[in-house]
Amino acid sequence: MGTLIEFKEVCKYYVMGDTTVKAADHISMKIDRGEFVAIVGQSGSGKSTCMNIIGCLDVPTSGTYLLDGRDVGKLNKNELAEIRNRMLGFIFQQYNLLPKLDLIENVEVPLMYAGVGRAERRQRAQEVLESVGLGDKLGNKPNELSGGQQQRVSIARALVGRPAVILADEPTGALDSHTSREVLGLLKELHSQGNTVVLITHDNSIAMQADRIIRLEDGRVVYDGDSRAPGAVVQVQIPVAEPQSKPAEDGPQAAAEDDGPQAAAEDETQIAGGGA
C-alpha cells in the first residue's frame, strides 16, 4: 500500500513565559494507505498537536512530516490550504457545520474551494449525503438535525473531496453511546472501502474500534501497535460512555477534551495497567 503519513522526530514546542511546553517530543511514526489508526491520549498528551500537524493546520517546530511523500514543513500557507483541501477530510467533535448554509451547501464547501463547477459540486454533494443516509434532508439547516445526523453531514463533507486521509478528531465526543456506535460504524465502513482513517480520541473504548493504536503521553509515543494486542489497553472494566442527560442536543457544551475527574481517573488506571 505504501506509506501515506510519516513523522520523523517531529517536535512541537510552545513557549509560555519561562517554560517551554513540549507538545510533541520527537514523535516518529508511519501510517500506511488504507490503515485505520487511533491516536489515543489524555488531554495534554499531545494528541491534538499531532492531529493539527497531520491535518496541516500546524507545522512542526523541528523534525519532518511527510504526507504522501511531500515535506509539509516546507510548504507555505497557500500550499497547506491546498493540501487540506485535496488530501484531508476533517471530522470534528463539534461537527463544525456552517449554520447558515443548508446541508448540501455545507458539503459543497470543500469542492467550492477546490474550484469544482456548480453542477458537479451539487451532484457530488448530493451523492455523498445520500450515502450517509441523509438524502432526504438536503435542504435542511444543520440546527434542524440531531447530533448524530449533524456528524454524518460532517462525515459527508469530509468525504466529498475524496481525500487521502480522513481525520476524525473526537468524532463521538458530543454524542450518546448509541449514536457514537453508529458513527464509528460509518468510519469502519469507510475504512473497509479502502479509506485511510485516523481517529483521535481520549477514549480507549473508542480507540479499540481501530485496527491500530498509537498512544501518546507527554508528547511521546508510548505504544504503537495492534489494538487487540495485550499492551494496547488493559481493560480493567467494561468501558461505558458516561450517561448523559441530554446527549446529542447540547453537544458543544457537554463535550470537551477535559472530561470529568472520573474519566481522567479511569484513563490513568488503564494506562497504569498497560504499563504493568
Binding site: 490550504a81 491546498e82 487540506r84 476533517f90 463544525n96 464547501v109 474551494y113
Partner: peptide
Amino acid sequence: TREIGIRKALGAKEIV
C-alpha cells in the same frame, strides 16, 4: 471567527 476557521480547515486560502 469559527466560520473562518472551518473554511480554512476545509481549504480556503488566505486570499479567498
